[in-house]
Design a binder for these strands. Structure first.
Lengths: 161, 161
DNA sequence: CACAATTTAGTTGTGCACAATCAAATGCCG
DNA sequence: CGGCATTTGATTGTGCACAACTAAATTGTG
């Protein structure tokens, strides 16, 4: 296990692969489990995220949905339309501001929540992590995301030099 | 904070939103930083992963690439073709097994490695994590991925009942 | 050898992520 | 009021993830 400081350059590329690849793999693995579990509900993973926000906070304009989930309209517009096609939501253009579109739960959409209640437990069990570990991972990931978001702006500025 | 059973259920959904969202967000945040950093090299993040494997292990059949990166041919085929169009790799059908296609680095592809050496350090700095934290996170994510992959199979079997 | 099963790529189709751009409605300012 | 910037969605185009399917070559078995 001797870690000579000299094994730098090539190892950096290896190490890097492990880090970014781990996250990439974990993200896709998570996605895979959600895909299986959500199949019964007829939802994809991002669609489930949208429904969670709606169940929690009630009807919202697309703009607010995008802020909560950090998704832009290029992703949300077709996604919400698919939810509408599935009969889970309606879209209604606001009367006081004609630019704004509210996303509203239908009866069917609201009812789906009952069947979604079992999802978190199945996911939790799939991770093999207990509550404390999940909370810890959650905290780390949030810290990571904050740092990365800040860095993305900095790096973007750097390459504009 | 009385936790009636109804509130508990709602809390589970809220927790799920937080957890799956943090992983989703972290993954996209990472992706965002890589996008910025790799822009100079003309690579996307998954293309960078492919190049890392080739730099480390030399020419490989598409099959082996897919195993290392856990990507199927539906993702790899067009990706490798884009790398070929960029002049970084060539594709050569094997002589002893006509089904197999080897991906080979061109001179240009090999040369790109030099410019890629600075990437890991920039990414590392972007995370705001030190080496120990990264190693720790790496271990947790790998454990998570292993558990999730196993669970995906189990859950898939469960829903086939 | 003949034939079925397996292996390896490729293709097609659906859905998400994100950048760039457009269009309409609103609000502000002189 | 008239004109312009801002806000809000929608659209388009590129690229990735993955499922389902096809095609061709190889391997195994009777």
């Amino acid at each position: 296990m001797t870690a000579s400081p000299a094994e730098t350059e090539a190892d950096w590329l290896r190490l890097d692969r492990q880090i970014c690849f781990s996250l990439h793999a974990a993200s896709r693995a998570f996605n895979g489990v959600y895909r299986v579990v959500l199949k019964d509900l007829g939802l994809t993973y991002p669609q489930y995220l949208v429904m969670l926000v709606l169940w929690e906070q009630g009807d919202l304009p697309v703009k607010k949905l995008g802020e909560q989930l950090r998704l832009d309209s290029g992703t949300l517009s077709p996604l919400v339309k698919r939810l509408e096609a599935a009969g889970l939501v309606r879209r209604e253009r606001s009367v006081e501001d004609e630019r704004s579109v509210r996303v509203l739960l239908t009866g069917e959409g609201t009812a789906l929540r009952e069947r979604a209640l079992e999802v978190p437990r199945r996911i939790m069990r799939s991770t093999g992590f207990d509550l404390a570990e999940i909370a810890d991972l959650h905290a780390r990931l949030d810290r990571l995301t904050t740092a990365l978001d800040a860095a993305a702006a900095t790096e973007a500025a750097r390459s504009r030099d």
